[in-house]
Simulated scan of single mutants.
Amino acid sequence: MTRALPDPGDIVRTGVVGCGLMGLGVVELFARAGLDVVAAVRTPEAVERSRDRLGESLGRSARRGKISDEEVSACLDRVRFTTDLFDLADRQFVIECVPEDRAAKTELLGELDGIVKDPDAVLASNTSSLSITGMARSTDRPGHLVGVHFFSPVPAIPLVELIPSLHTDPAVVERTARFLTGPLGKEVIRSADRTGFVVNTLLVPYLLSAVRMVESGFATAEVIDQGMQRGCGHPVGPLRLVDLIGMDVVSSVADALYEEFKEPLYAPPPLLNRMVEAGWLGKKSGRGFYTYAQGRP
């Protein structure tokens, strides 16, 4: 039986830029909430690839009994993929989910500021570490830019970090919070605009410590993960988590934290940097601290 969708409130037309792991998860989240979605990618090949991956993800949810086959079709009908940013002109909420690169995100938000026509539209960044205040300088409406940090997998993880900049209008913060908790059904924690926000400021030093243990030969990835899972009750060990997040993402967040605070515990270990250079990015590349066959270690 098809479930009733929540009241979407005043935001019904959404846009997502970037359809990597995080971006496509946000697209699926919006579609399953009954929202109209325009998803912008770089190339026509990425359009086809993203549409196929979305269908596969929704299909897995249907096979697990989380949604019906009718809902899968309805979700796909709600999403339009495009290579033209100007297709986002009528959106009420647009979130960028491009890789964690300050210059790229800042440039993109400046472009979106000139494209999105609704003067009340919310522009959001899904950054996991970068300054919202710094990126807001690229727009003519810094009061409407806010950080919205989802966690992967986006449809499954209930938490979202909401980060206003020094410029963000309090009314925009409240409107975004209602959007996240209402139709999207998320739990929201608010963070000050400082690198790493709440979760990554605590999480990343822990992950880097685990990498250093492997690097020094003190313990293997398997031993470290078993220790934290069986000894501390963590659902997944730190090295498996690094693989799931991606070496490149962990390294980028660590770089941003170290740049801001200059604390040695935030500096990415050489082993992490070498693995990024080798293209061993974790589960998404098939090799990290573990090797993966069909997504399984």
Rank of each mutant, 00 (worst) to 15 (best):
2 T>P: 13
10 D>N: 06
11 I>H: 01
16 V>L: 01
17 V>S: 04
21 L>Q: 08
26 V>Q: 02
31 A>M: 01
35 L>A: 04
37 V>R: 07
40 A>F: 00
42 R>P: 04
44 P>S: 10
48 E>Q: 12
58 L>K: 11
58 L>Q: 07
67 I>A: 08
69 D>F: 05
73 S>R: 15
73 S>K: 15
75 C>M: 11
75 C>H: 09
79 V>C: 13
82 T>N: 12
93 F>P: 07
97 C>A: 15
99 P>K: 02
100 E>T: 05
105 K>Q: 03
110 G>K: 07
111 E>C: 05
111 E>Q: 13
112 L>A: 02
127 T>D: 09
128 S>L: 09
130 L>C: 01
132 I>A: 00
132 I>T: 00
138 S>T: 02
138 S>Y: 02
138 S>Q: 03
141 R>S: 08
144 H>G: 03
145 L>Q: 08
150 F>N: 06
150 F>P: 09
155 P>K: 08
159 L>M: 14
163 I>Y: 06
164 P>T: 05
169 D>L: 14
172 V>E: 11
175 R>W: 14
176 T>Y: 12
176 T>G: 13
177 A>K: 15
177 A>D: 11
178 R>M: 14
179 F>M: 14
186 K>L: 12
187 E>H: 15
187 E>V: 15
188 V>S: 13
188 V>D: 12
196 G>Y: 03
196 G>L: 06
197 F>C: 01
200 N>M: 03
204 V>D: 01
213 M>N: 09
218 F>I: 14
219 A>S: 11
223 V>M: 11
229 Q>R: 15
230 R>N: 08
233 G>V: 09
239 L>V: 08
239 L>H: 10
244 L>W: 03
245 I>F: 11
246 G>N: 07
248 D>Q: 03
249 V>D: 05
254 A>M: 07
259 E>D: 13
260 E>A: 09
272 L>Q: 07
278 A>T: 08
281 L>R: 05
283 K>V: 08
283 K>T: 06
284 K>Q: 01
286 G>L: 00
293 A>S: 12
